[in-house]
Amino acid sequence: MADSIISARAIWKSFGELSVLKGIDLEVAEKELVFVIGPSGSGKSTLLRCLNRLEEPDSGSIRMDGTEILEKKVDINAVRRRIGMVFQSFNLYPHMSALGNVTLALRHVLGLPRDAAEARALAALERVGLADRVSHMPGQLSGGQQQRVAIARAIAMEPRVVLFDEPTSALDPELVGSVLQVMRDLRESGMTMVVVSHEMAFARAAADRVVFMADGEKLEEGPPASIFGNPRHERTQAFIRQIERH
């Protein structure tokens, strides 16, 4: 695929004796929303974290826009600048306002002057529907609002791709919708995204491709209609049946 943003090949990763990723391949094309599903412990988070090297793969290759990012001499901070990440537990900086959370990297990573950083941060916060919460501290925001600040923090960097690791699983059910709406808007605007999540309805509606993982391997992948409607693997069928029941 010529227009791949991320092209991960044969990623292996173990923690001690435990083999968590067993030669996974993952392609992510420009403007694509790739959904990763699979049972707990199958290695979804680890895979995502390997993509920006929060976790160091044991072997394999990850190309981003054609550049190998696993090489030792690569400036990993320059790579991460272009890969946003959104965490299950938000991980907002508790000592900074919403605006401060978003401007931090703009100022200290991109080196923007304060005014420019704040203008860009405001635009990002507006995009996630929080223009009226910019000076709130994280502790004064609901979970859904915190997660949207975290999304603003990621997209304000204007990354090539944003990685989401279960962005809604720590939220009360009534707050999930606002975060999914923001993700849907992002998708419309052409943002490339890799999403690990159990929100199957969202996957059906918004994903271009669904990847099913089990035991550190990619068992199958395809458009949501075929993965959900006509899964080939028995384990995929079982997983989907179990998820749908909830």
């Binding site: 907002l92 900086y93 508790p94 931090l104 990573v109 923090r153």
Partner: peptide, 29 residues
């Protein structure tokens, strides 16, 4: 929390920047 390091590092902020701007202000408090 480890997540504070990860959030800051994932934006491309370096080790020392993360320590100075994110971790120490919370630690000192």
């Amino acid at each position: 929390q480890k997540g504070q390091w990860e959030a800051a590092r994932s934006t491309g902020l370096g080790y020392l920047g993360t320590l100075r701007l994110v971790v120490l202000p919370q630690a000192i408090r």
